[in-house]
């Protein structure tokens, strides 16, 4: 039987289940394009090269998606 894993991570101030998710897959699930986004974990920017990083327990994630105009 498959064991159910729940991993609650703060995403933009809201608790969400992110078990097994990477930064990349989290962005996909939010319909955000990595080229138009910035991701910070515990107040530190996540370099694009590290988007395969799997989210862990104490991660507090801030995600910003940008739209055009200026």
């Amino acid at each position: 039987m498959k064991k159910e894993v729940i991993l609650l991570v703060m995403i933009n101030g809201e608790q969400k289940d992110c078990a097994g998710k990477t930064v990349h897959s989290l962005l996909s699930s939010m319909n955000l394009d990595p080229k138009r986004s910035a991701v910070m974990i515990r107040g530190e920017i996540v370099p694009k090269a590290e988007y395969d990083r799997i989210l862990s327990d104490d991660d507090d994630v801030d995600i910003v998606g940008f739209v055009g105009g200026g």
Binding site: K35, I45, P47, V64, V67, G68, G69, G70
Partner: peptide
């Protein structure tokens, strides 16, 4: 004005200038 450029700048400043605070505009 281009979203990819906005993301590039915000990411680059936060990564490369640890002492700087970033203010960005999105949606006006």
């Amino acid at each position: 004005d281009i979203p990819e450029q906005k993301a590039m700048l915000v990411n680059a400043v936060l990564e490369k200038i640890p002492s700087a605070i970033v203010i960005s505009g999105s949606g006006m």
